[in-house]
Design a binder for these strands. Structure first.
Lengths: 135, 135
DNA sequence: TTTTCACTTTAGAATAATTATAAACTAAAA
DNA sequence: TTTTAGTTTATAATTATTCTAAAGTGAAAA
C-alpha cells in the first residue's frame, strides 16, 4: 500500500493524517501478509524501526481509531492479551497457547451447518470460531 | 449437590476441603442451572451471602484450582473480563456485549461441517464458537 | 498567508484486574 | 499429639489500559 493510499485511507475515515498516524499506518498496512499484534508488541516494533518515539498512549489511541474505522480487527484470546489483526475480512483463528500465536483461518475453510437462533429481541452480529491447539 | 458430594469432589481432585473452598464450592455447585461469573462478581455475591469474609486472593486461588481440576470452564470475551462457567461440558456461547451477558449454547445446537487441519506438529484441543449478538 | 480552533499527541497519573509475597494458619499424615 | 505440606490472608507488585490536562498541529476560514 502506497503512501498516497495511506493518506486516502485515513482521510476517508475522518482521521487526520498526522505524522504518528501515517507512520503507524505505513507500518501496519504496507505489507503483503496479515499481521497480528498487541499494542505492546507494536510499540516495541515501532521503537526498533523508527527514529522518532511515539507515545504508548498514542499507539493505543491510533489502534483504536483504526479499529473503529474498520481498518483493524480485534481478537481476544485466552491469557488476557488483546490482539489486533490487519485482516478485517470475515475469518476465524487458530490459537496456540503454547506460543501465544494466532493464525488466520479463511472463512471458507470453516463451514457451520447449524447454529441456534438468537435470543428474542437480539440479532446475530457475527460468529467467531476459535480452534485451540495443543502439541 | 450435597455437602458430602462437595467434599468428595474436592478430595477426588486433591484439593483439601478447607472452610473457604467448601463454602465457595457449595455456592457454585449447589444449583440446578449453569452459573456464569467473574471473580469480582463471585466475590460480591459471597460477601452478601456469607458471614465470614473470604480474601479476594483466595477466591482467585480457589477458582483457578477448580478450573485446573476441571470443575469450572473459563470463557474469555470482548471487554477484558474473564468469565467462569459451572458448565464444564463441551458447549458454545452467545455473547451480548450490550449487557455483558454470556449465554450457553448446547454443543448439539452447533454443527460444524468443515474445519481445517491443525498446523503441522499441532493437534486440535477444542473448538469454541462465539456468536456475538446485537440488538 | 496568517489566524484560528477543533482535533491530536504526550507524559505521567489513575484505574482495574490479576498475581506475587511471605507470614500466619490448618488439614491430615505420622 | 506433633509435624509438615498445603492453604489463606493482607498487602505489595505487576500488567494492561484509560484518563487528564497541557502543549502541539492539521486544515478551514479570514
Amino acid at each position: 500500500m502506497k503512501k498516497i493510499d495511506i493518506l486516502k485511507k485515513l482521510r476517508s475515515s475522518s482521521l487526520r493524517p498526522t505524522k504518528q498516524r501515517v507512520e503507524i499506518a505505513k507500518f501496519l498496512f504496507e505489507r503483503e501478509k496479515t499481521f497480528h499484534f498487541t499494542v505492546e508488541s507494536l510499540n516495541k516494533l515501532l521503537i526498533k524501526k523508527s527514529t522518532s518515539k511515539i507515545a504508548l498512549a498514542t499507539i493505543y489511541n491510533t489502534v483504536h481509531a483504526f479499529k473503529a474505522a474498520g481498518h483493524l480487527n480485534e481478537v481476544e484470546v485466552r491469557g488476557n492479551k488483546t490482539y489486533f489483526d490487519t485482516n478485517v475480512s470475515n475469518h476465524h483463528h487458530f490459537y496456540d497457547s503454547e506460543t501465544s500465536e494466532l493464525i488466520d483461518i479463511d472463512a471458507n475453510d470453516v463451514v457451520i451447518q447449524k447454529i441456534p437462533k438468537a435470543p428474542n429481541g437480539k440479532k446475530i452480529k457475527n460468529v467467531e470460531v476459535f480452534i485451540n491447539l495443543k502439541n
